[in-house]
Design a protein around this nucleic acid. Structure first.
Lengths: 110, 110
DNA sequence: GTTTTATGAAACCGTTTGGTTACATATTTG
DNA sequence: CAAATATGTAACCAAACGGTTTCATAAAAC
């Protein structure tokens, strides 16, 4: 994906480092330096991954003093869930087929 | 991802062309030339996308005479669904929280 | 007010990606 | 058998990716 056009959710989760970041941010809001301690790369590289996650709305940023705290914004994964749900009707499993119907019905109420 | 290591499902669906291919193959098994008619690129480029989808097990190939027919193998998307299910517990919606519990319980029976 | 800390931006670099065209091969058709 | 068809492989290319180091800036701490 181009540098001008923003990265979407599918791009964002394609990278294993970014997927790990999402799990890390699932419970805690964390500043860049803290996040970078969990990865074998420079803080700058971590910062760039966070920018991509931010572009795709998977994380949100809050400035607190000199820190920038990032936290998970899980609602952005709904796009992925919706995309997936289309294919569930093709799983050769009657139980998941049934569940597909139940889920899509439930979705209407959200 | 490297050329030696196979592409995984997350890589495979990162590209919009490949996502479109999956939808196209959802209903019909199709040979390369037929598939390429749906995309504004060369048959060779289409073939390369299909190889990546094949590496990630999202499609399967069957040789029929001089044709290679590709079809969707939706079970490969289970990995994605499982990955997603971890995050559903964080959606700030009690209903989807409840559904998460129901689904993971149901999964045990498959 | 100087120093330290936290961060992002810029420039750079090797590798991968997504496309191309040309070619080789196998199968079907006439 | 010769010609046409279906496909994959190879070589190539520009752009994007994922990393680096250096620098600028803002806020906190001393």
């Amino acid at each position: 994906m181009s540098a001008l056009h923003k990265h979407d959710v599918f791009d964002a989760i394609a990278d294993p480092t970014r997927r790990k970041m999402l799990k890390l941010l699932a419970y805690d809001e964390l500043p860049v330096t803290m996040i970078s301690h969990h990865f074998p790369m420079s803080r700058t590289a971590v910062s760039k991954h966070l920018r991509i996650l931010s572009e795709s709305k998977l994380v949100s940023m809050t400035k607190v003093g000199r820190e920038t705290r990032y936290k998970l914004h899980p609602e952005a994964l709904l796009e992925l869930k919706d995309w997936l749900s289309f294919f569930e009707q093709f799983w050769d499993n009657k139980l998941s087929m049934l569940r597909h119907v139940v889920e899509t019905t439930t979705d209407r109420e959200e």
